[in-house]
Design a protein around this nucleic acid. Structure first.
Lengths: 141, 141
DNA sequence: AGAAATTTGTCCGTATGTATC
DNA sequence: AGATACATACGGACAAATTTC
């Protein structure tokens, strides 16, 4: 059923949600957002509406889209003159990371740490762990 | 010429046709479906529409797609409460397999064996042979 | 081993028709 | 009537995985 728009339009609500994910680090800087069709499924919205939301994020500078590749979260600077420091390093997986990421204990994983600043003070630190890419993963390849 | 959708959408009609071919055995389990562009030509539909149809089949579990390779017809489980066990192993190609698969005699091929159960009894066994794909399979997601 | 061709994945822009505020 | 949104469909382009030469 076509969803009417009470108050706020859908595309704006979706943009708000995605903005929140980017700024909170749920979608870390440099990471790919879900594909358009995935977002269609998640938000149960049509492609036009999704694209409308993504366009809004691009205008804000929060996202960059590469033709044929996808939409990335950009490294965004929060606050007025707020700087965000991000560090990328390799750490050894603890037991929890190992279980969640599906690696063995002590295996190397990449840690991307982002310090989020608001009003000149670091309000939060986000650490994102992933299996190392570009070298040797791909589970079944 | 954007085709309006009076009545049934085209992607669904195409999915119906392909489903019929898989379930009837015209496209046997494990075989590759025609490529997307071939299907475009056959149904005179755009690639997006073809992919829409294929996505529907994937959701039904009737097809599995590999990036850069193609879309396979899955082992179909007949019956409503049919259970199936599948085993994957590597065997040596006999002369018939060699000729059909285009490998040399005695070359390794993967054999996917599925035992289809109905009412607690194995009603049939399906064996699917393919050229090895590099290692084990994957098909998560 | 490397280049080219295939094939799928994703995005772009546009278009038509329908439905609901 | 206009804005919003949905579902569908087209054709084109670039990206990435696989296969072939």
């Amino acid at each position: 059923m076509p969803t009417p728009h009470y108050g706020q339009p859908r595309y704006r609500a979706i943009a708000d949600e995605l903005r929140e994910r980017i700024q909170s680090g749920v979608i870390p800087p440099g990471a790919l957002l879900p594909t358009e069709s995935t977002l269609c499924a998640e938000f149960r919205a049509s492609r036009g509406t999704i694209r409308h939301a993504l366009a809004a994020l691009r205008e804000e500078g929060l996202a960059v889209t590469d033709h044929g590749r996808g939409t990335y979260a950009s490294i965004h600077v929060w606050g007025s003159s707020g700087q965000s420091r991000t560090a990328l390093r390799t750490v050894l997986a603890d037991s929890r990371l190992a279980a969640l990421l599906g690696v063995t204990l002590g295996e190397q994983v990449t840690e991307q740490e982002t310090a989020i600043e608001e009003n000149g003070r670091v309000s939060s630190v986000v650490r994102v762990y992933r299996k190392p890419v570009r070298s040797a993963d791909k589970q079944s390849k």
